[in-house]
Deep mutational scan, measured.
Amino acid sequence: LKKVVALYDYMPMNANDLQLRKGDEYFILEESNLPWWRARDKNGQEGYIPSNYVTEAE
């Protein structure tokens, strides 16, 4: 899975979204639905995130 790091905080707009915290790492599960990607956080929560809020992890 592709790993990304959040560049900004993101508060979910609806139940399908995943909250982002700046500096945290996330795994990308699906990239087909631009600009929204399906992601999983370190706690196993899954949801959609804005792809322009993250960058690929080193």
Rank of each mutant, 00 (worst) to 15 (best):
L20K: 00
M13L: 14
E30S: 10
D41T: 05
V4F: 08
E31Y: 12
L7D: 03
L29E: 03
D9N: 10
Y10C: 04
V5K: 08
V4H: 03
R40Q: 07
E46H: 04
K42S: 10
N14Q: 10
R40F: 06
D9V: 02
N14L: 07
V5A: 03
G23D: 07
M13Q: 14
G44P: 00
W37K: 06
P12S: 07
S32G: 13
N43L: 10
K3N: 04
L34F: 15
R40L: 08
K2A: 04
D17G: 15
L18T: 01
Q45P: 02
L1K: 06
D41Q: 02
V5M: 08
L1I: 11
E25N: 08
E30V: 07
N33G: 10
L34N: 15
Y26I: 05
Y26H: 00
A15F: 10
E58F: 14
T55A: 13
D9F: 03
P35W: 15
N43R: 09
K22L: 06
E46V: 09
Y8A: 09
N14V: 06
A6I: 01
G44N: 06
E46A: 05
G47A: 01
A15S: 12
Y48C: 12
K22F: 05
K22W: 04
K3E: 03
Q45Y: 11
A6P: 00
N14W: 10
Q19F: 08
A39W: 02
R40G: 03
Q19C: 10
V4Q: 02
L18P: 01
E31K: 10
R38E: 03
R40H: 04
S51R: 13
W36N: 07
P35S: 15
F27I: 12
M11S: 12
F27T: 11
D24P: 01
M11E: 14
G23N: 05
G47H: 01
E30Q: 09
G44V: 01
V4M: 08
Y10M: 04
P50F: 09
E46C: 06
Y10V: 04
E58H: 13
K3T: 08
R21E: 06
W37M: 09
E46N: 04
S32L: 10
L7V: 07
I49F: 06
L7S: 04
N16I: 08
M11H: 12
R38V: 08
M13F: 09
G23F: 04
M11L: 13
E46D: 05
A6T: 01
V4W: 07
A6M: 01
E30W: 11
M11N: 11
I49K: 00
Y53K: 05
R21G: 03
L20Y: 01
M11C: 14
F27G: 03
K2F: 09
R21F: 13
V5N: 04
T55V: 14
Q45H: 13
A39F: 02
V4D: 00
Y53N: 03
M13P: 07
A6F: 01
R38Y: 15
D24Q: 13
P35G: 15
E31C: 13
T55G: 09
G44E: 04
G47L: 02
A6S: 05
T55Y: 10
E56P: 14
K2E: 03
E30A: 08
W37Y: 11
K22Y: 05
S51P: 06
V54E: 01
I49L: 07
N14H: 14
P50A: 04
K22T: 07
R21V: 15
V5I: 14
S51E: 04
N33W: 08
W36E: 05
I28W: 01
A57W: 13
R21T: 14
S51D: 03
W36D: 04
L1Q: 07
F27N: 04
A39G: 05
P12H: 03
S32H: 08
G44F: 05
R21W: 13
E25W: 14
A57G: 10
R38G: 03
Y48D: 06
E25T: 15
L34M: 12
D41R: 02
M11P: 06
N52K: 11
S32R: 07
F27Q: 07
Q19E: 13
A57N: 09
D24I: 06
E58I: 14
T55L: 10
M13C: 14
K2T: 06
I28H: 00
V54Q: 01
Y26V: 05
V4R: 03
K3Y: 06
E31S: 12
A6Y: 01
L18N: 00
E56C: 11
D24C: 13
P12Y: 02
M13E: 11
A15C: 12
N14D: 10
M13S: 11
P12E: 03
A15H: 12
L18A: 01
W37C: 07
L20R: 00
V5P: 00
L34P: 14
W37D: 02
M13A: 11
V54W: 02
V54P: 00
G44M: 06
V54Y: 02
V4A: 04
E46Q: 06
F27W: 15
Y26C: 02
N52T: 12
M11V: 13
L34I: 08
Q19P: 13
Q19R: 13
Y53F: 11
V54I: 07
Y10F: 11
K2Y: 09
M13D: 09
Q19S: 09
I28V: 09
N14R: 13
Y48W: 15
W37L: 13
V4L: 04
E25K: 07
G23Q: 03
L18G: 00
P50M: 09
I49T: 01
D24W: 14
T55Q: 12
Y53R: 05
A57K: 12
F27Y: 14
A15L: 10
D41F: 02
E31N: 10
K2D: 02
G47F: 03
W36L: 11
A6V: 02
G23L: 03
F27H: 07
L18I: 05
E31G: 08
P12A: 06
A6C: 04
A39K: 01
Q45G: 08
K3Q: 06
N43G: 08
E25Y: 15
Y48P: 02
K22G: 04
P35R: 15
V54T: 05
V4S: 02
D24T: 06
I49P: 00
S32A: 09
V54A: 03
P12Q: 04
D17P: 02
L1V: 09
I49G: 01
P50D: 06
M13R: 14
K42H: 09
R40C: 08
K22C: 08
M13K: 12
I28P: 01
W36G: 05
K42A: 11
Y26E: 00
A39C: 07
D24K: 06
R40V: 10
K2M: 08
R21H: 13
D9A: 04
Y48E: 04
E46M: 06
M13H: 11
G23I: 01
E30H: 08
Q19T: 10
K3A: 05
M13Y: 09
L20V: 04
L34Q: 13
N43H: 13
K42E: 08
E31I: 11
A6H: 00
S32Y: 08
E31P: 07
M13I: 14
N14A: 11
N52I: 10
K42N: 09
Y26P: 00
P50S: 05
G23V: 01
Q45A: 12
K22V: 08
D41G: 05
E31L: 09
A57P: 12
D24N: 08
M11Y: 14
G44Y: 04
G44I: 01
Y48R: 09
E56N: 12
P35Y: 15
I28Q: 02
K3L: 10
V54N: 01
D17A: 12
F27R: 04
D17S: 10
G44W: 04
L29H: 03
K3G: 03
V4K: 03
A6L: 01
A6K: 00
Q45M: 13
T55C: 12
L7R: 06
V4N: 01
W36M: 15
N33A: 12
N52C: 15
M11A: 13
N16F: 12
W37I: 13
I28C: 03
V4G: 02
Y53E: 01
I49E: 00
Q19K: 09
R38F: 15
Y53D: 02
A6R: 00
K3D: 01
V5L: 08
L18S: 00
D9S: 06
S51N: 06
Y10D: 01
Q19D: 04
D9H: 05
W36S: 07
L34T: 15
P35D: 15
Y26L: 07
Y10K: 04
E56Y: 14
